[in-house]
Amino acid sequence: MATFTLNINGTKQEVDVDPSTPMLWVLRDHLNLVGTKYGCGIAQCGACTIHLDGTATRACMLTVSSVGNSEITTIEGLSEEGDHPVQKAWLEVDVPQCGYCQAGQIMTASALLEKNPNPTDEEIEMAMNGNICRCGTYTRIKKAVKLAAKS
């Protein structure tokens, strides 16, 4: 066990956990931030996507000891009122089916748009390919990313 001070959603948080603990479980089990989902644990599905200094990162393979002073943003911190352009577009297009993968999809999409405000279809697909949606909401996700890009 070791103590880590983390910078999460703009707030300093202290946790006392094993240094090998992935951020996914630190967020979920220790900080009650359950919007970041577990899907595979091996960086294959994208359900656990967070922003690490603005870059979309899989929290399931990111150990707490490697985070240091980096800024972490989770779905809960993406916007205060749930009104980030990507979240709004997601609602407008009624993207979710079961909804389980969607926090990860939104985190990947918002990081993409931050770096590339007007992505082509191919760029959207390449950026989003690490995020599986078992319910098959892919066509609507692309529509929503494009809608968010416009706003």
Binding site: T74, G82, D94, P96
Partner: peptide, 21 residues
């Protein structure tokens, strides 16, 4: 009619079994 849980889903609220603590 849009998904009644839409807002909760896109903001990462605890909705699923795995989110029970």
């Amino acid at each position: 009619k849009k998904n009644v849980d839409g807002k909760e889903i896109v903001t990462g609220k605890p909705l699923f079994g795995l989110d029970v603590y």
